[in-house]
Design a protein around this nucleic acid. Structure first.
Length: 839
RNA sequence: GCGGGCGUGGCGGAAUGGUAGACGCCGGGGACUUAAAAUCCCCUGUCCUUUGAGACGUGCGGGUUCGAGUCCCGCCGCCCGCACCA
């Protein structure tokens, strides 16, 4: 007979090889079956798989395997988001080539993923740093260019003068470069932009169609796009100029008591040219911090320019200030300030002694009501506002916009928070932007037949800056238009571009073009996309934009790439540390022995303190290496742990005790599988019911991604089958358990399947059938309540009538004792559930 | 400030308005064993000179209902996103 214990160290590898050989997981685009595309966010090849990847890919794997069992043709691909800074950092630190470093990491991580037995179609694997992939990306970029969605613009960037590179906002810490520590400068550079703002309305509207997305993510995107509607109009200034301003509260226009512009507004610059005082003030504004806390506490500061602005209705001359709280890159960079109904304006007016008129009040009778130390931004009726008096805020907005448009001095406009997407990066390890700079012809696209523009291999990272710019010959080329001497663009594309269309390339990968529209149409949209919440905005918005942009160019039919999105929680772990003087020294879980309530350091046997359960991070050393735990417990125990206990959208606390429990359950199921007995016969109707109910419920749970609930049901049926005597129904229960567990513990399932004499591979088996007739019980337990409190339970036929149930309930001795002769006023009967007696 | 989410045993968490705490972990007790490992069984929210089909119990206070963890109103606490966005 079979081994007493399931040995993953032998079985895992055996079945992984068997799946590879049978090509179980290669998706067939030509299949007649209905299709399901399951995708997890592809990893950055940083070096090793971490536990978050394991959780992410295990969830997707369960879905992929489950849908295959349900007769779907499943596409479940994997690849590598392989461009990016860490490779260049490694090059600088260790003197290796970014490409060599990246491909070596891919090799390692692919091996690790294989150890987990994921049902991935490796035949479609690619890395975004493959010249083939980024060549196609360059072609797509040129398509967008031809369709007017790509442009160049001078814009301000964070420049690290030591590393000689542009930094993303996140790489600027306290005004200093995160690597060099150098004071970051603002520099104006010519940058490439994608016109994502052309799609702002469309991206916003599309959100309402994404019913399979978490509400949270939809709201985050909505806020990010930031649509606001209001009035744009221009003030006539006392110096003869015009000042356009934007407001979302045109209704409060009679409450405007000053006008303010941003420090970098042209008007401010003009004033600064005349006044040293103004220059000093502008300098001061630029120094202000940008962190949340700083902004919250930052004092409102202003500089009176001496210029005045004429109010369009009253003709009053309002003072014009340069103010530190006005932003240049939103609206027009200038505002009409209404202190009574905007908190910032209120603070500013209070400080500089400007009038704070009330123009909105709870009722018309309260036009003179004083303010209670702060602005009132809420609803009400208009007061002290001439022809607007008595109107609602909404009506007044419309009225002012209508008058402004009629008078030709302003118009209703929509303003977006969303900015165009700057994609230029002064880095080596990215997709070269396929353009050429010619002195005679300007900026010209590289002809498509010359793609890919490949990265040079012979680069050095010995000195800071962009290696492409420094390379002795790479940028030298001929102008494709005039044939004269020209230079290649040395900027590369933001890595978010790479991940904005990879799902299309997974679906279809012809050699001569980025993808085939018809083949893509067969797979897209992705039915279930799974990844971390950290990509809720940028990646998902960019991918939605690229899909729309490509559709706009006629390359695609679909507009929304991801029909359903699931954002999984993090894997967390408690921390172990000791105080060493003022600083906290952390220890890895492997260095620590967990005892009852405490923990001791293995090395010296002395206690360490147990800290909070937080996200695994290198700095807190609370990490576990997937490879270690796979070695100790086998892939299936690790996978099972990832699915048990915590709902998948919440954080999952890793624990040694938990993984041990999972390891035990793997063996427990194995022992049950061994009890499968062909010679057993006879019925066990109770177990049969439980089996069919479990099959139906587990299917429902998996489809809802409620893996923790599916796991609990499998535990329950396992217990029931263990306790049951041998019978044909018990054999069926065991077989069904094996099949239900197979998406989660595929190696164990294959091993058990083989031992039971099942045909072929479980990976290619079908989901067990449900007998609907067995889903309902003949007899049900009825709760009997007296005045809403449980007094007794009784067993009754499933279809017992209300009258019968009432009679049964009243016959209960316990119930009678509780009623104690009181008058029965009402009896509520819910058939099949309960009886509630009210006295 | 704006927007969103969440508060249930020692812990992770179950619960279409209908028996709160399924399932797992931890803990306790027992069986098997020369012993250990492995495994199996039982107990495990709080309280109680009524040990009982008792009382209390899902952050707090109200409400709706025959019945509320679930619905409504008002608080408190924690978490996340955005943020001087006019």
């Amino acid at each position: 007979m079979t081994a007493e214990r399931f040995d993953p160290s032998v079985a895992d590898g055996r079945w992984q090889a068997a799946w590879d050989e049978a090509k179980c997981f290669e998706a067939d685009s030509a299949s007649d079956k209905p299709k399901t595309y399951v995708l997890e966010m592809f990893p950055y090849p940083s070096g090793r798989i971490h536990i978050g990847h394991v959780r992410n890919y295990t969830m997707g794997d369960v879905l992929a395997r489950y849908h295959a069992m349900r007769g779907r043709e499943v596409l479940h691909p994997m690849g590598w988001d392989a461009f990016g800074m860490p490779a260049e950092n490694a090059a600088m630190e260790k003197g290796v080539h970014p490409g060599g470093w990246t491909y070596a990491n891919i090799e390692t991580m692919k091996g690790q993923l294989k150890q987990l037995g994921f049902a991935l179609d490796w035949s479609r694997e690619f890395a975004t740093c493959d010249a083939e992939y980024y060549g196609h990306e360059q072609a797509l970029f040129l398509d967008l260019f031809e369709n007017g969605l790509v442009y160049r613009k001078e814009s301000e960037v964070n420049w690290d003068p030591v590393d000689m590179t542009v930094l993303a906002n996140e790489q600027v810490i306290d005004g200093k470069g995160w690597r060099s520590g150098a004071e970051v400068e603002k520099r104006k550079l010519n940058q490439w932009f994608l016109k994502i703002t052309d799609f702002a309305e469309d991206l916003l509207d599309g959100l309402s169609t994404l019913e399979g997305w978490p509400q949270k993510v939809r709201l985050m995107q909505e806020n990010w796009i930031g649509k606001s509607q209001g009035l744009e109009f221009a003030f006539d200034l006392s110096n003869g100029e015009q000042l356009p301003v934007y407001t979302t509260r045109p209704d409060t226009i009679f409450g405007a008591s000053f006008v303010a512009v941003a420090a970098d507004h042209p008007i401010a610059q003009g004033v600064a040219a005349q006044s040293a005082e103004a220059r000093d003030f502008i300098e001061l504004c630029k120094k202000g911090g940008t962190t949340a806390a700083e902004l919250e506490t930052a004092e409102k500061l202003g500089f009176d320019t001496g210029i005045t602005a004429r109010h369009p209705f009253t003709g009053a001359e309002l003072p014009l200030y340069i103010a530190n709280f006005v932003l240049m890159d939103y609206g027009t960079g200038a505002i009409m300030a209404v202190p009574g109904h905007d908190q910032r304006d209120f603070e500013f007016a209070s400080k500089y002694g400007l009038p704070i008129p009330r123009v909105v009040a709870p009722s018309v009778d309260e036009a003179a009501k004083p303010f209670d130390g702060e602005a009132e931004a809420g609803e009400g009726v208009l007061v002290n506002s001439d022809f607007l008096d008595g109107m609602s805020v909404e009506d007044a907005k419309a009225e002012v916009i209508a008058r402004a448009e009629k008078g030709g001095w302003g118009k209703g406009t929509t303003v977006w928070r969303l900015r165009d997407w700057g994609v230029s990066r002064q880095r080596y390890w990215g997709t070269p932007i396929p353009f050429i700079h010619c002195e005679a012809c300007g900026v010209v696209p590289v002809p498509k037949d010359q793609l890919p523009v490949k990265l040079p291999e012979d680069v050095s990272f010995d000195t800071p800056g962009n290696p492409l710019l420094r390379h002795p010959t790479w940028k030298d080329t001929a102008c494709p238009v005039c044939g004269g001497k020209a230079e290649r663009e040395t900027d590369t594309l933001d890595t978010f571009v790479n991940s904005s269309w990879y799902f299309l390339r997974f679906a279809s990968q012809p050699a001569d073009k980025p993808f085939d529209a018809a083949e893509v149409a067969q797979w897209m949209p992705v039915d279930q996309y799974i990844g971390g919440i950290e990509h809720a905005i940028l990646h998902l918005l960019y991918a939605r934009f690229w899909t729309r942009a490509l559709a706009h160019c006629g390359k695609l039919e679909v507009t929304e790439p991801f029909a359903s999105l699931f954002t999984q929680g993090m894997v967390t772990h408690e921390t172990y540390s000791r105080k060493d003087g003022p600083r906290e020294v952390y220890f890895t879980p492997a260095e620590v022995d967990r005892t009852g309530n405490g923990a001791v350091l293995k090395e010296d046997g002395q206690p360490v303190s147990i800290g909070k359960v937080i996200k695994m991070s290198k700095s807190k050393k609370n990490v576990v290496d997937p490879e270690d735990i796979i070695r100790d417990y086998g892939a299936d125990a690790v996978r099972w742990f990832m699915l048990s206990d915590s709902p998948p959208e919440r954080d999952l606390p890793w624990s040694e005790a938990g993984i041990e429990g999972c390891g035990r359950f793997v063996q427990r199921l194995w022992r049950l599988f061994r009890q499968y007995d062909d010679s057993a016969s006879g019925e066990d109707i109770g177990l049969a019911r439980k089996t069919h109910q479990t099959i139906a419920a587990v299917a429902e749970d998996i489809e809802a991604l409620a893996f923790n609930k599916a796991v609990a049901r499998i535990y329950e049926l396992t217990s029931a089958a263990e306790k049951a005597a041998p019978s044909a129904d018990r054999n069926h229960a065991i077989r069904s358990l094996l099949l239900m567990a197979s998406p989660m513990m595929p190696h164990l399932a294959e091993e058990g399947w083989a031992a039971m004499g099942g045909d072929g591979l479980v990976a290619e088996a079908s989901w067990p059938e449900v007998d609907e007739a067995l889903l309902v019980e003949d007899e049900v337990t009825i709760a009997v309540q007296h005045k809403g409190k449980l007094r007794d339970t009784l067993t009754a036929p499933r279809d017992a009538s209300k009258e019968d149930l009432e009679a049964l309930a009243l016959a209960s001795e316990k119930v009678q004792r509780s009623i104690d002769g009181a008058e029965i006023r009402k009896v509520i009967v819910v058939p099949g559930r309960l009886v509630n007696i009210v006295t």
